[in-house]
Lab assay of single mutants.
Amino acid sequence: VTLFVASYDYEARTEDDLSFHKGEKFQILNSSEGDWWEARSLTTGETGYIPSNYVAPV
């Protein structure tokens, strides 16, 4: 399981994006799509795309 933590807050801009807060942890589901990764929030359980430059490895 690949875990990352949010370095910043992010507000979703499309329905496919995932909003999150600094400190929130994610399981990365797919990182092969470039700068936007499909992730599941371990806080909310929601799945969506997050900007990879807003998160760091745990």
Rank of each mutant, 00 (worst) to 15 (best):
Val1Lys: 10
Val1Trp: 14
Val1Ala: 12
Val1His: 13
Thr2Tyr: 12
Thr2His: 11
Thr2Asp: 11
Thr2Arg: 11
Thr2Lys: 11
Thr2Glu: 11
Thr2Trp: 12
Leu3Gly: 03
Leu3Thr: 09
Leu3Tyr: 12
Leu3Val: 13
Leu3His: 09
Leu3Phe: 11
Phe4Val: 10
Phe4Met: 09
Phe4Lys: 01
Phe4Tyr: 15
Phe4Leu: 04
Val5Arg: 05
Val5Lys: 05
Ala6Leu: 01
Ala6Thr: 03
Ala6Gln: 00
Ala6Phe: 01
Ala6Asn: 00
Ala6Glu: 01
Ser7Arg: 15
Ser7Gln: 15
Ser7Asn: 14
Ser7Lys: 15
Tyr8Met: 13
Tyr8Gly: 07
Tyr8Leu: 10
Tyr8Ala: 12
Tyr8Arg: 13
Tyr8Ile: 08
Tyr8Phe: 12
Asp9Met: 04
Asp9Cys: 08
Asp9Phe: 04
Asp9Ser: 09
Tyr10Leu: 01
Tyr10Glu: 00
Tyr10Arg: 04
Tyr10Asn: 02
Tyr10Ala: 00
Tyr10Gly: 00
Tyr10Met: 02
Tyr10Trp: 09
Tyr10Phe: 09
Tyr10His: 05
Glu11Gly: 05
Glu11Ser: 10
Glu11Thr: 13
Glu11Trp: 09
Glu11Leu: 11
Glu11Arg: 08
Ala12Gly: 11
Ala12Asp: 02
Ala12Ser: 10
Ala12Tyr: 03
Arg13Leu: 11
Thr14Met: 11
Thr14Lys: 14
Thr14Asp: 11
Thr14Gly: 15
Thr14Pro: 02
Thr14Ile: 06
Thr14His: 14
Glu15Leu: 10
Glu15Ser: 12
Glu15Gln: 12
Glu15Val: 11
Glu15Ala: 13
Glu15Gly: 13
Glu15Ile: 10
Asp16Ala: 14
Asp16Tyr: 15
Asp16Trp: 15
Asp16Phe: 15
Asp16Met: 14
Asp17Arg: 15
Asp17Gly: 15
Asp17Asn: 11
Asp17Lys: 15
Asp17Ile: 12
Asp17Thr: 15
Leu18Asn: 00
Leu18Ile: 10
Leu18Phe: 08
Leu18Gly: 00
Leu18Met: 13
Leu18Trp: 04
Ser19Glu: 03
Ser19Lys: 04
Ser19Pro: 05
Ser19Asp: 04
Phe20Ile: 06
Phe20Asp: 00
Phe20Leu: 05
Phe20Lys: 00
Phe20Pro: 00
Phe20Cys: 01
His21Gln: 13
His21Val: 14
Lys22Glu: 07
Lys22Pro: 03
Lys22Leu: 06
Lys22Asn: 04
Lys22Val: 10
Gly23Val: 00
Gly23Tyr: 05
Gly23Leu: 03
Gly23Asp: 05
Gly23Ser: 03
Gly23His: 04
Glu24Met: 05
Glu24Thr: 07
Glu24Tyr: 04
Glu24Arg: 00
Lys25Gln: 12
Lys25Gly: 05
Lys25Thr: 12
Phe26Ser: 00
Phe26Trp: 01
Phe26Val: 03
Phe26Asp: 00
Gln27Glu: 14
Gln27Arg: 07
Gln27Trp: 14
Ile28Asn: 01
Ile28Thr: 01
Ile28Ala: 02
Ile28Pro: 02
Leu29Met: 08
Leu29His: 04
Leu29Gln: 05
Leu29Lys: 04
Asn30Gly: 09
Asn30His: 08
Asn30Tyr: 06
Asn30Trp: 08
Asn30Leu: 07
Asn30Met: 07
Asn30Ile: 07
Ser31Glu: 08
Ser31Gly: 09
Ser31Leu: 10
Ser31His: 10
Ser31Phe: 15
Ser32Lys: 10
Ser32Tyr: 10
Ser32Phe: 10
Glu33Thr: 12
Glu33Cys: 14
Glu33Ala: 13
Glu33Met: 14
Glu33Asn: 15
Gly34Tyr: 09
Gly34Phe: 09
Gly34Val: 11
Asp35Pro: 10
Asp35Gly: 11
Asp35Cys: 11
Asp35Tyr: 13
Trp36Ala: 05
Trp36Ile: 07
Trp36Val: 06
Trp36Glu: 04
Trp37Thr: 02
Trp37Ile: 05
Trp37His: 03
Trp37Lys: 01
Trp37Ala: 01
Trp37Gly: 01
Trp37Tyr: 08
Glu38Gln: 11
Glu38Cys: 15
Glu38Arg: 08
Glu38Asn: 07
Glu38Met: 15
Ala39Ile: 04
Ala39Glu: 02
Ala39Ser: 01
Ala39Gln: 00
Ala39Gly: 06
Arg40Met: 14
Arg40Gly: 04
Arg40Tyr: 12
Arg40Ile: 14
Arg40Gln: 11
Arg40Glu: 07
Arg40Trp: 08
Arg40Leu: 14
Ser41Met: 05
Ser41Lys: 12
Ser41His: 07
Ser41Glu: 03
Ser41Ile: 06
Leu42Ala: 05
Leu42Met: 11
Thr43Gln: 09
Thr43Tyr: 09
Thr43Ala: 10
Thr43Met: 09
Thr44Asn: 06
Thr44Lys: 03
Thr44Leu: 02
Gly45His: 06
Gly45Trp: 06
Gly45Ala: 04
Gly45Leu: 06
Gly45Glu: 05
Gly45Phe: 07
Glu46Cys: 12
Glu46Val: 09
Glu46Gly: 07
Glu46Ile: 10
Glu46Lys: 15
Thr47Val: 14
Thr47Trp: 08
Thr47Asp: 04
Thr47Lys: 10
Gly48Pro: 00
Gly48Gln: 01
Gly48His: 04
Gly48Asp: 00
Gly48Ala: 02
Tyr49Cys: 11
Tyr49Leu: 14
Ile50Val: 08
Ile50Tyr: 00
Ile50Pro: 00
Pro51Phe: 06
Pro51Ala: 04
Pro51Val: 02
Pro51Lys: 06
Pro51Cys: 09
Pro51Ile: 03
Ser52Phe: 07
Ser52Thr: 06
Ser52Asp: 02
Ser52Tyr: 08
Ser52Gln: 07
Asn53Ile: 10
Asn53Thr: 11
Asn53Leu: 10
Asn53Asp: 10
Asn53Gly: 11
Asn53Gln: 12
Asn53Ala: 14
Asn53Cys: 15
Tyr54Trp: 07
Tyr54Arg: 08
Tyr54Leu: 14
Tyr54Gly: 07
Tyr54Phe: 11
Val55Lys: 02
Val55Asp: 03
Val55Gln: 03
Val55Asn: 02
Val55Met: 10
Val55Pro: 03
Ala56Asp: 09
Ala56Phe: 13
Ala56Thr: 15
Pro57Gln: 08
Pro57Met: 09
Pro57His: 06
Val58Pro: 05
Val58Trp: 13
